[in-house]
Nucleic acid binder design. Structure first.
Length: 604
RNA sequence: GCCCAUAUGGCUCAGGGGUAGAGCACUUCCUUGGUAAGGAAGAGGUCGUGAGUUCAAGUCUCACUAUGGGCUCCA
């Protein structure tokens, strides 16, 4: 038996640890390394080691569950003391002491009845047992520490070296918001020191491109304690960036035959009652009163678009009719979930509602999927699609839901587009396809969404006149491509680490005149760029040339352009590559051609 | 909303019961320089807000607000 053997993988892909497999196992061995299976075993055992350390440091602690997750492991437990980030070091130290005791990890099996009796005075273990259907329960033991566990584990503590406890958090027992909150500690573990180090470095790099940090540095956006949480302010640089994104997307909508519309920010509460928002979404809505009438600030834009559709009589010839709006919405998000621009209380959706016939659903959904794809491609984003089905709180008949859900499935299946299913994750008025972008540190954020809705048209008696002169109800497709400008720009910022492509960059060119006498030339260039719709700045402050070049380089602008006697005489520019520090000269006209070429790259 | 943590000039941070400090940024002056920090002077903070303990609180305690890491929920 190899020194490095920590388990086996059987025909079904299940991991067997050495304790379960016995001496003469013929399944494929798992060696101690960074393979997916090995890491699962190592991390699970590290979680147990942590629990053992905690139980020694805090004798009253009781343990719930300690699974392996994507990035590492965690353990949930109850403890009398408050545990903060500063206590993690002490726990790590204790873990290392325990490793030195060279405990073997042993496994034995008991019946469920015996287990219930064994842990009779531990209500958390009772809770764990109640979730296990099996009649035979396995227990793992290392030193004096025993824990209910399915495994798999490494054979002995000596395999556990390269770990780090990363954060302490609260977590509801069983994930239920109404249940008791336990303490959770997260950690990571690898087979070797280098991988652990690489992981820590990666997290530090991710921190450097955090949109909140870059947003402050580049003066893109801000929040302010006096104004309230989750309410972003767009500073000039951020507003310029956002405006460019809005313009690109505006043109893309027009090309695809969308019509711009705009609805009011607040609508009478009765309208929200008709729609079902009041009952199903009310806890997220801000309500107000005007002249003794209740009003609701819109959390979604659909009602406005429905009113506009209904204002004039529609024919089947008008369908599909696509209304779009950069709609500002307000939602009462819980204070604890706010997160930079990625989760706010006021945001602007790139929202559209497509009114169409049932037959038009599939082609329209496909068209939107294509739209999404072209936008994601423009920015180089990876994304996944998820079909979300009927949630608990919902309006409308089951049959209607089934038809709508099937419509979405057909549209994706028919075109071999990959997706997963999110059971019960739909909007209260219809099923949806969610488009999730993977960000710089691997988190997934919902951005785009496509929702089929038979319910609101019915509730608001939305109608069109069909070919046979009868009145029919259209289907509504709610959709957003970016999701919201706030979230999307947050993700974009991290994606590009603030170095936006020319067609998005808030400042696209910085001119550095060599001395005062070249400032006029620089300002003339700035004016010329302005007329082409390009934003530039002139760095002519009373600082040394070196200092101004340094400052300009650090601005994350696409172009730093130096102008001095040579350039003024030759009507040219000296362009500096901020990465290689190399420089090349172009005439003004050549430069304009180059800039316009790069602007065109922002077309979709 | 819940658990844990944090809050000191515009930014990044030091200080740790006896009434505040650095670097960068900012202002003014000198310097007009061909590719990543030229020099000098200056201004700027009731240490998040409100209570409490104390002879004395930026420092200790509590509440609130905001922020961060999670849970739950979502674009």
């Amino acid at each position: 038996m190899s020194e490095n053997l920590i388990g086996y993988i059987d025909d079904q892909g299940n991991i067997l640890d050495t304790q379960s497999a016995g001496e003469n196992c013929t399944a494929t061995p798992i060696e101690y390394d960074n393979s997916e299976q090995a890491l699962e075993i190592i991390r699970h055992s590290t979680a147990h080691l942590m629990a053992q350390a905690i139980s020694e440091l805090y004798p009253n602690s009781q343990f719930f569950v300690g699974p392996v997750v994507d990035e590492g492991f965690y353990y949930d437990f109850r403890v009398d003391e408050q545990i903060g980030e500063n206590d993690l070091k002490a726990i790590e130290k204790k873990m290392k002491e325990l490793i030195k005791k060279k405990y073997k990890i042993e496994k034995y099996e008991i019946t469920k009845e015996e287990a219930l009796a064994k842990f009779a005075n531990d209500d958390l273990k009772q809770a764990v047992l109640s979730r296990i259907p099996d009649e035979t329960i396995s227990v793992y033991k290392q030193g004096d520490f025993e824990d209910l566990c399915r495994g798999p584990h490494v054979p002995a503590l000596r395999f556990l070296h390269n770990f780090k406890l990363t954060r302490v958090a609260g977590a509801y027992l069983g994930g239920d918001e109404k249940a008791e909150m336990l303490t959770r500690i997260y950690g990571v573990a690898f087979a070797d020191k280098e991988s652990l180090k690489a992981y820590i470095t990666m997290m530090e790099e991710a921190k450097k491109r955090d949109h909140r940090k870059i947003g402050a540095e580049m003066e893109l956006f801000m929040f302010n304690e006096e104004s309230g949480a989750g309410l972003p302010f767009w500073m000039p640089q951020g507003a310029k960036l956002r405006y460019k994104l809005e313009q690109i997307l505006h043109k893309a909508h027009l090309v695809r035959e969308y019509e711009p519309v705009r609805g009011p920010e607040i609508l009478k509460a009765d309208l929200w009652r008709t729609s079902g928002h009041y009952a199903c979404y009310g806890e997220n809505m801000y309500l107000t009163e005007i002249d003794e009438q209740e009003y609701g600030i819109k959390p979604m834009n659909c009602l406005g678009h429905i009113q506009i559709f209904k204002q004039t009589q529609k024919s089947y010839r008008d369908l599909p009719l696509r209304y779009y709006e950069y709609g500002v919405v307000h939602r009462h998000e819980k204070s604890g979930v706010l997160h930079g621009l990625l989760r706010v209380r006021e945001f602007t959706q790139d929202d559209a509602h497509i009114f169409c016939t049932p037959e038009q659903i599939a082609p329209e959904v496909l068209e939107v999927v294509e739209f999404v794809d072209s936008v994601m491609k423009l920015f180089g984003f990876e994304y996944t699609m998820e079909i979300a089905t009927k949630p608990e709180k919902a309006i409308g008949e089951d049959a209607v839901w089934e038809t709508a859900t099937q419509g979405l499935i057909d549209a994706l299946d028919g075109n071999n587009l990959p997706y997963s299913i999110d059971e019960g994750g739909g909007a209260f008025y219809g099923p949806k396809i969610d488009i999730k972008i993977t960000d710089a540190i691997g988190r997934k954020w919902q951005c785009g969404t496509i929702q089929v809705d038979f319910n609101l048209p019915e509730r608001f008696e939305v109608e069109y006149v069909d070919e046979d002169n009868t009145r029919k109800q259209p289907v509504m497709i709610h959709r957003a491509i970016l999701g919201s400008f706030e979230r999307f720009i947050g993700i974009l910022t991290e994606h590009y680490a603030g170095e936006f492509p020319l067609f998005l960059a808030p400042t696209q060119v910085i001119f550095v005149p060599i001395s005062d006498s070249h400032a006029d030339y620089a300002y003339a260039l700035k004016k010329r760029l302005r007329l082409e719709g390009l934003d530039s700045e002139v760095f002519d402050k009373n600082d040394s040339l070196n200092k101004r070049i340094r400052t300009a380089e650090k601005q994350r602008v696409p172009y730093v352009v130096i102008v001095g006697d040579e350039e003024v005489q030759g009507n040219s520019v000296a362009i500096r590559n901020r990465r290689t520090r190399e420089q090349y000269n172009l005439t003004q006209d050549e430069f304009m051609v180059e800039l316009n070429k790069q602007l065109q790259e922002g077309k979709i």
